[in-house]
Design a protein around this nucleic acid. Structure first.
Lengths: 166, 166
DNA sequence: CAGCAACTATATCCTCGACAATATTCCCCG
DNA sequence: CGGGGAATATTGTCGAGGATATAGTTGCTG
């Protein structure tokens, strides 16, 4: 650690990125908490709600979130107990089961999303004028495409659900 | 969730940012793991090593990481057991104790940092040509300054340690 | 200088989530 | 058609870490 490695521009770059992530995450979590949702619960709810039929197989849900399959089992347990989602047996494969959003879950999402969007606007996208925002997002997109090859859905892909193929 | 809220550009913007964070975090964690360090352990080590005397009070260490004070107690326990850091009593305040990096900890850091820097270069900074990188970092910096006011150390500040004053 | 509020580290309890093991079901291939 | 390997969800077990309570210390203030 002799020469000041910590002033290396690469270190400061990731530091920047991670600070932004931490700051936004904290603010989002606070707002979600007002609606009785944790971060992962919100993510599960949105992933299901944006899927056809408001449902997803447990495995696919795990693939779309940052959770393991057992983690998905656990969070779905909690949310089923809270009435936000339900399990439905898969008719074609008796090993699988679907997690499907209940009307309660959908309305909870409806309550939550507007404030969430407002928060994004307030602390992220609204902080930059359009060209600067576009430039920033372009940079992030290129890094994302490198680091997360599965998510290259941008153009030419099919619906957008092939992300679950990763 | 009637109109496709999920195509809202604000949603995709945070999605992008969070995917980048997740992707980089995973790669970093894998490399750190090769050196027997977890993410938080690496952060603790770097925070201490960049501080005067290679030491920090437990409270300040907690403030500089994303850990609670009890979390810091825990991780310092582990790392002390592994010989990476040591506790030293504070001479002026008998409530406080310092966590100080051992020579073992420093050399572990020396082993780890080069690969870490290489990874940053490979997956983040090296993915963009200099102007695009600068633009991206500028955008991130502005968002960071908004979302994390403490970290406005950039210019005019004193050393850089006033970050701990937050 | 006595007492009280704030601060510091730690201990205790609890939730969350990963990993490995398990049971069930599916599918392919001989 | 039958058996073995892959896929799927769940459960047991464990470590990580937050919230709160606790004990010791400091410093201010009447």
């Amino acid at each position: 650690m002799n020469p000041n490695v910590f002033d290396d521009p690469r270190i400061t770059a990731v530091g920047l990125l991670f600070e932004v992530h931490a700051g936004l995450s904290a603010r989002f979590a606070a707002q979600l908490d007002e609606h009785g949702l944790s971060t992962v619960e919100f993510e599960v709810l949105t992933r299901l709600a944006r899927s056809p039929g408001n449902q997803l197989r447990m495995t696919d849900l795990a693939a779309q979130t940052s959770l393991s399959t057992s983690g998905v089992t656990r969070v779905v347990d909690r949310m089923e107990r809270d009435g936000l989602i339900t399990r439905r047996a898969c008719p074609t494969d008796r090993r699988s089961s679907f997690a499907v959003v209940t009307p309660t879950g959908l309305s909870r999402l409806d309550e939550t999303v507007p404030g969430h969007l407002q928060l994004i606007e307030e602390w992220f996208t609204g902080q930059l004028d359009p060209p600067a925002l576009a430039a920033t997002l372009d940079g992030l997109r290129r890094v994302r495409d490198a680091v997360n090859p599965c998510a290259t859905a941008g153009s030419g892909g099919r619906t957008e659900d092939q992300a679950e193929a990763c």
